[in-house]
């Protein structure tokens, strides 16, 4: 996916404290030119703080930020030429769409003749040409966020920083905008760092995902690698749902319902049954590891249509062969 492997930004041993608690702890991270990197983690883990440090908005931290091998810690935000988009859009409500963009261009001292052309081109890119005279208040959330994006990319930033840009939007709009964002990023090829707490968003957008927890970076890899080989239960559970059976991580969709008892077949009692659209999530109580072990099973909606999985019903299930530990095999077979 990555266009080039050239290292653009280097974060070295960055730590940040608020009072006595760490907001960031020894963060080391490289960002490659042209890539789309997602910072993923639960709320409060320090993602925004890291992004703000990159933007130059926080000045009081330990460690170094390098760009093309040069320290940029002492450079003011405006001089870094990093574009930034916030969850709350942060559009100036008293300026029309084009004035908002013009504001940014003027601040970067664009020549007058170029400003109009530039506005035109970013509006086209973000599909907003017809709304150029409107005020933020007259636009939907999705449109507003596109304006914010247009405003951020208009001055041709070297890095685009996005802090939960889609989190405030409705599900459908979010999906749509996700596609557009990806496309725009590819078209202009700008190095992009996006903060999100939504794993689905991270997995679908990013070239690489950096997972954070409790102020620390816990894993950084491609989405697939992260999904398939989480390094810790935290990552595993954060990226979707995960069963932990004898310290093996087993995805709920990998647990299969079986009709009859057999080798590697276990039994459990249904404690809940949720309809989730294209699948059904069932929680079981089983005695597989200890007496009260809960196991989560996702069943595609078209499977086992004849069964009802009522609460209290006893059912059988199989665990994937390759991940089942020796212990289980011995005990069952």
């Amino acid at each position: 996916m990555m266009k080039a492997n050239k290292n653009l930004i280097q974060i070295e041993n960055v730590s940040k404290k608020y009072g006595n608690t760490f907001a960031l702890k020894n963060i080391n991270l490289e960002i490659f030119e042209g890539e789309f990197l997602c910072l993923l983690g639960p709320s409060g883990c320090g993602k925004s703080t890291l992004l703000r440090i990159l933007a130059g908005l926080e000045t009081n931290y330990d460690g170094k930020i390098l760009k093309n091998g040069k320290e940029i810690d002492a450079i003011e935000p405006g001089k870094r030429k990093f574009g930034m988009v916030f969850q709350s859009y942060s559009l100036f409500p008293n300026m029309s769409v084009e004035k908002n963009i013009e504001f940014a261009l003027k601040a970067f001292k664009y020549e007058k003749q170029k400003i109009n052309a530039k506005i035109e081109s970013v509006l086209e890119l973000t599909n907003l040409l017809e709304h150029r005279k409107k005020f933020p208040n007259q636009l939907s959330g999705g449109q507003q966020q596109r304006v914010a994006l247009a405003r951020a990319i208009a001055p041709e930033p070297t890095v685009l920083l996005l802090d939960e840009p889609l989190s405030a939007l409705d599900f459908k709009v979010r999906e749509e905008l996700r596609q557009q964002l990806k496309k725009i990023q590819r078209d202009i090829g700008v190095t992009t760092i996006m903060v999100t707490h939504d794993q689905e968003e991270a997995l679908s957008l990013a070239d690489r995902v950096a997972v954070m927890n409790h102020a620390e970076l816990v894993q950084i890899s491609t989405p697939e690698e992260i999904y398939r080989n989480p390094k810790s239960f935290f990552v595993a559970n954060f990226i979707g749902t995960m069963n932990n059976i004898y310290n093996k991580f087993i995805r709920p969709e990998d647990v299969k319902i079986s009709d009859k008892k057999g080798c590697n077949t276990h039994s459990g009692i249904v404690i809940s049954n949720e309809f989730r659209g294209f699948y059904r999530r069932i929680k079981l109580k089983s005695e597989i590891e200890n007496e009260k072990k809960e196991i989560i099973v996702d069943i595609p909606i078209f499977h086992h249509q004849d069964r009802s999985f009522n609460e209290g019903e006893s059912i059988h299930f199989n665990l994937p062969q390759e991940v089942v530990s020796e212990q289980i095999k011995e005990r069952i077979c």
Binding site: G78, G83, F103
Partner: peptide, 23 residues
């Protein structure tokens, strides 16, 4: 008023004074 205005403007190379008066 959104508390990120100043941050947003800073990344746009605009001075706080400008944002204060213009926004």
């Amino acid at each position: 008023i959104d508390s990120n205005f100043q941050a947003a403007a800073q990344t746009m190379n605009a001075s706080k004074l400008t944002v204060f008066f213009k926004v």
